[in-house]
Design a protein around this nucleic acid. Structure first.
Lengths: 229, 229
DNA sequence: GACACCGATCTGTAGGACAGGTTTTACGGG
DNA sequence: CCCGTAAAACCTGTCCTACAGATCGGTGTC
């Protein structure tokens, strides 16, 4: 039986206002001072509650103007995971590869059924530049552009956002050597061939294989677990 | 060219301490007063930065004791989405059904290859009670226990957490009528049969079909889009 | 050695004050 | 009447002080 803290009170109050529809997406919250008075807690506690909702992508604050309810889109909420994924240890990143493999493969399959010739041509150009590039940062950027460009075609923003989050960390690990890059390039071409053929199953398999390949390379390079005891 | 705010300074400082390994999981952060002094911002700003990390599951604070770095497990981070999923409008929930279908089907497939006889027997008992139950809350609880019980067998905590988040909202919508409940019960039995046969593909298909069925029921009951213009 | 107690430390909360933005209002000129 | 400008009102961002309540650590007593 512990007393409910002031910040929890404020958080619950704000959450309820949004959940029951009193505050719609885009609406302006009352000022911190007014909320402080109405909820019976100090302004500092209100600010901490707003910080919590802000971190989760539920509201956004503009200095001098006020705090506004976000668009409440699932994709935005998922995107907030990017910060935390950046803090996970390598073991957790490897665990997430399974999610990435399943979701990215699914997204690519959907995209295979929806892409048009112009988009495919653009993706081909991207691969040409990627294969010709010798700069690591440029390679990483083009790789990301290629994969996300395909994922965005799938038609489900939440899925795109999730794939984006799961890919966000991998870019930080340089696993591309001249040798592995050839394999990676071949994987990209396989995905593009499947898209060209409008073959969702082939695209899914190619994407899954490509992700798995990245996982294997990363796993080979991880430091050995420290001996304890 | 806008000046970096105090809270951002504090947030960046704390994030860096965790990212570069200076603070390991379970470690205690310096006190708010000390951080305030070291980072050159007020204690209130430090608290707001800590609130942000706390909302994202990166740290946790114990009153009187201090703030500690969390375990930095992906599953914990993902779990923080539960609060936000509870605020999404129905349209967003429907969009998330695609993620749920793909991920839950995959999880069940993995579980089919790992479950033992005792677990399957326990799941069968659950279904017996679910089929006999006439209380909505009890049905919802048993349904959740059945599905999560299976998902937990898959061996990937992040996947389990994601499925848990995606399921968290659906329980709030009562779509079960006497008629639909019979279909739902049959779906559960189909999943259990596939598990008994240790057949991942059959289990995956059965799970996907079950999720899709729920989606259809929810879609039929959603209010018609308002006419605009 | 076990236990109770007390002081130090830390988080939780409140209130006040001011700086630096933004929005609204009022005013004056055309 | 319309418009643009300047002032006023409002709001968030930040810092400071103060104190309550919880927890932890050390001390002394039995």
């Amino acid at each position: 039986m512990h007393e409910v803290s002031a910040v929890e009170t404020a958080l619950h109050g704000l959450r309820t206002l949004i959940a029951d529809g009193s505050l719609q997406p885009g609406d302006k919250l009352s000022s911190e001072g007014e909320l402080s008075e109405r909820l019976g807690v100090s302004r500092g506690s209100v600010r901490e509650a707003i910080r919590t909702l802000s971190a989760l992508g539920v509201v956004e604050t503009r200095r001098g103007a006020g705090t506004y309810v976000g668009e409440l889109r699932a994709a935005d909420m998922i995107q907030t995971l990017t910060l935390t994924v950046g803090l996970l240890p390598l073991e957790s990143i490897l665990e997430l590869f399974e999610l990435r493999r399943v979701l990215e493969a699914h997204a690519v399959a959907l995209s295979a059924a929806r892409c048009d010739d112009a988009t495919i041509a653009g993706l081909g150009d991207l691969l040409d530049r990627l294969e010709a590039s010798e700069d690591e940062d440029e390679q990483s950027a083009l790789d990301h552009e290629f994969h996300m460009g395909i994922a965005r075609l799938c038609g489900n923003e939440s899925l795109v956002s999730m794939v984006s989050v799961l890919r966000s960390r991998s870019r930080a690990y340089p696993v591309l050597t001249p040798e592995t890059k050839r394999v990676s390039d071949a994987g990209h071409r396989a995905i593009l061939r499947a898209l060209t053929a409008r073959d969702p199953v082939a695209a899914s398999v190619a994407a899954a294989a490509h992700v798995t390949q990245s996982e294997v390379w990363l796993r080979e390079r991880r430091p050995a677990p420290e001996a304890i005891g």
